[in-house]
């Protein structure tokens, strides 16, 4: 899922400082699951922002609504009536959701209420970890299902750096070295031979280096 984290109440207050009538929009998909931008979190953020404005003596008229997915127009269009009444929108979706709403309502200011972080998983309660950078050319098969592009701080494709230890990454003592995980995993599935040959430089064209990407799948077009 896409993992995001909330902006502080001070940041939210500053984002909408010039507006008196604002719509907070939550998203019912990824950011609900990661406890950042679902109905519950938007309610809490709304209450806190109203309080902050009240303390400043600048009361805020704030409406809140959460839609199923902010990244699909089919759901965004349902916001039209509420958007018409508001001066500005704060989207509690991921960065894609914020931009999708902005594109749908070109005459309204749309602000991001979250910091979108990464593609990851729920590691344990209240802990999410990054697993995928979306490089566009998945190499997981040759690394036993552990991605060095994402999980090695130096994106090394041919083995660990000199700072690697069996306990942790050189950069973060709380994070295991991806290469130790790759080694252990390939060893356990008896595929260490996958590490024998030199992996050539990665072609980054399918990744983000050519600018924003687009996928067109004609078989699904009507």
């Amino acid at each position: 899922m896409i993992v995001a984290s909330p902006k502080s109440v001070t940041e939210l207050k500053n984002l909408i400082a010039r507006h008196g009538k604002v719509l907070f929009v939550g998203c019912g998909t990824c950011v609900t699951v990661c406890l950042a931008g679902g109905e519950r979190e938007v309610s809490i953020a709304s209450y806190a922002t109203r309080m902050a404005r009240k303390i400043e003596g600048k009361p805020l008229e704030l409406t809140q609504v959460t839609i199923e997915r902010q990244c699909e127009n089919e759901f965004i269009k349902d916001l039209a009536d509420e958007v018409a009444k508001a001066e500005a929108i704060v989207s509690f979706g991921c960065g894609a959701g914020v931009q999708a709403i902005a594109e749908r309502f070109p005459g309204k200011p749309v602000y991001a209420g979250l910091n979108t972080q990464f593609l990851g998983i729920l590691e344990k309660q209240a802990v999410w970890t990054e697993k995928c950078l979306g490089c566009g050319d998945c190499m997981l098969a040759q690394y036993g299902g552990v991605c060095p592009v994402t999980r090695c701080a130096k994106r090394l494709l041919n083995g660990p750096c000199g700072g690697s230890t069996e306990e942790h990454c050189e950069v973060d003592a709380d994070r295991p070295c991806a290469w130790q995980l790759i080694y252990a995993r390939l060893r356990s599935i008896d595929q260490l031979d996958r590490l024998d040959s030199i992996v050539p430089p990665k072609d980054w064209r399918p990744a983000w280096h050519s600018g924003a990407r687009k996928i067109v799948r004609k078989e699904h077009q009507v």
Partner: peptide
Amino acid sequence: AHQSLGVCPQASGVHDIDSIQ
């Protein structure tokens, strides 16, 4: 050494290729 370890923690690392490549 990773840039975050002291050279310039705010900098983005390139890491287009690795040292073996």
